[in-house]
């Protein structure tokens, strides 16, 4: 977590419903607070759009990993069957590409999945052993019925006041 100029680690506000969380997120963004993070027990419709969360990296990296490794897998089979150890099987041509496809496909899929999982971990900055949010006692309820909004702001006072006005049940400062 980034530390603000004032040595401030962010505010965490709890809301009672997804709608309130969504409305608060909208108002904070409108007021110019852009470093927001929301935590909810289920996907709140519209929240990702309000946070302008877009994920472009993973699909592209997965596609790239799949095509490159599938290409390598195909070339390796072609090289070993045609150049390195040419042997005629069942009267078929040396470059019997239909037989290369299952391995090509599987290598491509495997690497797409691995690239997806690894990119996801890296982008989430995992593995990570501690996070200031874990000190917040109530935060575990974000997996049952708590809706949380974390705000990093250069003007924590204004942000706290705005969060209160949006109907936050509680607003606390995160400890390092």
């Amino acid at each position: 977590m980034t530390v603000g100029e004032s040595g401030h680690h962010g505010l965490i506000a709890r809301f009672d419903s997804g709608d309130k969380l969504l409305a608060a997120t909208r108002r904070l963004r409108a007021a110019g607070h852009h470093r927001l993070d929301a935590h909810a027990p289920f996907p709140v419709p519209g929240l990702a759009e309000v946070l302008e969360y877009r994920e472009y990296g993973i699909p592209r990296i997965a596609l790239l990993a799949a095509t490159i490794t599938a290409g390598i897998a195909f070339l390796m089979q072609w090289y070993s069957a045609v150049i390195d150890y040419p042997i005629v099987v069942g009267g078929k041509p040396l470059n019997s590409w239909p037989a290369f496809l299952p391995v090509t496909f599987k290598v491509g899929i495997f690497n797409a999945v691995m690239a997806t999982a690894i990119t996801m971990l890296v982008k989430n900055r995992l593995p990570r052993f501690h996070h200031p949010l874990f000190d917040e006692k109530e935060f575990s309820e974000s997996s049952t019925d708590g809706f949380f909004l974390v705000v990093h702001s250069d003007e924590p006072g204004a942000a706290e006041e705005l969060l209160q006005r949006c109907g936050a049940r509680s607003v606390r400062e995160l400890q390092p």
Partner: peptide, 12 residues
């Protein structure tokens, strides 16, 4: 479609 093709093509 491919599994039919690969089976027929390999057995020949």
């Amino acid at each position: 479609a491919y599994s039919q093709y690969i089976v027929v093509w390999s057995a020949n």
